[in-house]
Amino acid sequence: MTAVTSWLRADVTTSPLHARMQRAFYGWLRLRANPLAFAGFLTLVGLVLVAILAPVIAPVGYNEQSLALRLRPPSAEHWFGTDELGRDIFARIVWGARITIYISTLVAVIAAPIGLAVGTTAGYFGGWTDTVLMRINDMFLSFPGLILALGFVAALGPGIGNAVIAIALTAWPPIARLARAETLTIRASDYIAAVRIQGAGPMRIILRHIVPMCVPSVVVRITLNMAGIILTAAGLGFLGLGAQPPTPEWGAMLSTGRQNMLGAWWIAAVPGIAILLTSLAFNLFGDGLRDVLDPRSE
């Protein structure tokens, strides 16, 4: 262990891998030094573990109905109680973690590259390229995210796959804006001038020199947006346009719990708390990530 640590702390890095590992190591130390961000990170790691281990944690499955046991309050047997069909809410929350992670990763994977590509291209080339791309961007930005997602889902048909596409389509414009703003400052810098007088073409400059500088703020931004994305997904579920029953999507669970809210508060409260905690964890982690990814603070 000490051998590994001293290798990571070495004054002289001896290979590209070593240099990268050292940077990651110092980033990790900075994350550890920030208790709130680290708590957010642990919560997210916990969420991923729960999602992976769902069959072990909740072997009953999310759709075992038992009408004799409906609307039971939380107890030793059913930690979070049961819903209106007698399904164990704990099991549904655990299996629902998979859906939440599925939605958030897929949205990030779709929205971040689109936003980065549009933003850096617009920022680097400027002129009419910038005007055209940014006006398209404005068209997307001028609708509230949920309304736009509703529109897309209505056109594409309800379902979790379409919900992801719809949310991704509403998530890229702020990222493009951010990447463009960053690109405008980066492209005026001397290190871009230096690579230009080495004879590099625009594609190379954007991909190898501008994008790596934009990635940290985009990662931070999308992590902070993740709370909103999860809430939008839950909102679509709540309106019946996202995951369809009996899928244990947290927003949809919240929606059905609403009918029994006065008599059985736990049906709505538990998925609500799960959404809240996950969004909060993403927010805290995103905030801390800003320090971790800044190369100048090493």
Binding site: P16, D190, Y191, A193, A194, Q198, G199, P295
Partner: peptide, 29 residues
Amino acid sequence: VQMVFQDPYGSLHPRHTVNTTLGEPLAIH
């Protein structure tokens, strides 16, 4: 024709190692 800039704090890419910075012109050509 090559150029050396005034500010060495602004003329080097912050996320590229020395190796990458020097390898880039060779890769381009």
